[in-house]
Computed example of a mutant assay.
Amino acid sequence: MIDVSGQAAEWVVEAPEETAMTDLGAGLAAVCCPGLVIYLEGELGMGKTTFSRGLIRAMGHEGAVKSPTYTLVEPYALAGVEVYHFDLYRLGDPEELEFMGVRDYFRPDSICLIEWPVRGRGILPPADIGITIAPAGSGRRLHIQASTELGGSVLARWRQKHRSQQRQ
């Protein structure tokens, strides 16, 4: 893990209900930047798509945000940035990603959200930010780690924004 501006590049936050999960996604949207790769991990039903929905809608998408379970990827052209939402749950072999031209999605002008990244191991680029979602009572706990300088910078801004919203 890296350290950015004296802050640990790790954060654990609770999402007691679905609204909190979408709010966390929206909070990340407010501080994220092109070139970011975000891994979303957790068992089925943990809220990976709910988090993604919050981020994508906060970036300006007004339509439905569905899980790309069968299509593997859903593109969103938003305010000067392409957002690609991947769900690799049904991926049979990581090599299938090569056939779909996955490397073309990871560009300096795009943001990639990847659910079930372990299924694309060896093909996917490393994450800037990894989010693992687990049960916590009736809600969820998000363990967030930055693993690049870009990820650390975004994580520091996200935490600061979240803290300031909590004080309001």
Score class of each variant (00 low, 15 high):
residue 20 A to V: 07
residue 151 G to D: 01
residue 8 A to R: 04
residue 125 P to C: 03
residue 11 W to N: 00
residue 149 E to G: 03
residue 100 M to D: 08
residue 46 M to G: 09
residue 64 A to W: 10
residue 61 H to P: 13
residue 103 R to E: 09
residue 27 G to F: 10
residue 21 M to P: 13
residue 126 P to R: 01
residue 70 Y to K: 07
residue 88 L to A: 07
residue 9 A to H: 06
residue 1 M to W: 02
residue 28 L to G: 08
residue 118 V to F: 09
residue 148 T to N: 05
residue 19 T to R: 15
residue 23 D to G: 14
residue 139 G to A: 10
residue 162 H to I: 07
residue 7 Q to T: 01
residue 59 M to E: 11
residue 145 Q to T: 05
residue 38 I to W: 07
residue 12 V to L: 04
residue 47 G to R: 11
residue 78 L to P: 11
residue 108 P to L: 10
residue 22 T to E: 13
residue 119 R to C: 04
residue 143 H to V: 14
residue 116 W to P: 04
residue 48 K to Q: 05
residue 138 S to E: 07
residue 104 D to V: 13
residue 96 E to L: 02
residue 42 G to F: 08
residue 18 E to K: 00
residue 144 I to Y: 09
residue 132 T to F: 07
residue 135 P to L: 09
residue 125 P to Q: 06
residue 28 L to D: 11
residue 90 R to L: 01
residue 61 H to R: 14
residue 70 Y to S: 00
residue 94 P to M: 05
residue 72 L to S: 01
residue 28 L to W: 11
residue 31 V to K: 03
residue 34 P to C: 10
residue 161 K to T: 05
residue 97 L to A: 07
residue 123 I to Y: 01
residue 48 K to W: 02
residue 23 D to K: 15
residue 153 S to E: 08
residue 106 F to K: 00
residue 10 E to N: 02
residue 110 S to V: 13
residue 109 D to M: 11
residue 18 E to G: 04
residue 90 R to V: 00
residue 8 A to C: 02
residue 61 H to S: 11
residue 67 S to Y: 05
residue 16 P to N: 10
residue 146 A to Q: 08
residue 46 M to S: 13
residue 86 F to I: 13
residue 123 I to N: 08
residue 152 G to S: 08
residue 145 Q to F: 05
residue 137 G to Q: 01
residue 150 L to E: 02
residue 156 A to G: 09
residue 49 T to F: 02
residue 80 G to W: 13
residue 168 Q to S: 14
residue 136 A to S: 08
residue 40 L to V: 10
residue 124 L to P: 00
residue 28 L to I: 04
residue 68 P to D: 01
residue 143 H to N: 06
residue 96 E to A: 01
residue 20 A to K: 13
residue 160 Q to V: 03
residue 27 G to D: 04
residue 129 I to K: 00
residue 12 V to A: 07
residue 35 G to Q: 13
residue 13 V to K: 01
residue 53 R to K: 15
residue 111 I to S: 10
residue 98 E to P: 08
residue 53 R to F: 10
residue 110 S to M: 15
residue 42 G to M: 08
residue 164 S to F: 10
residue 61 H to M: 13
residue 80 G to C: 14
residue 41 E to K: 09
residue 155 L to Q: 12
residue 144 I to V: 15
residue 58 A to L: 05
residue 126 P to G: 01
residue 152 G to F: 02
residue 39 Y to M: 02
residue 156 A to I: 01
residue 147 S to F: 03
residue 99 F to T: 12
residue 151 G to V: 03
residue 37 V to P: 04
residue 110 S to Y: 04
residue 163 R to K: 11
residue 125 P to T: 09
residue 45 G to R: 14
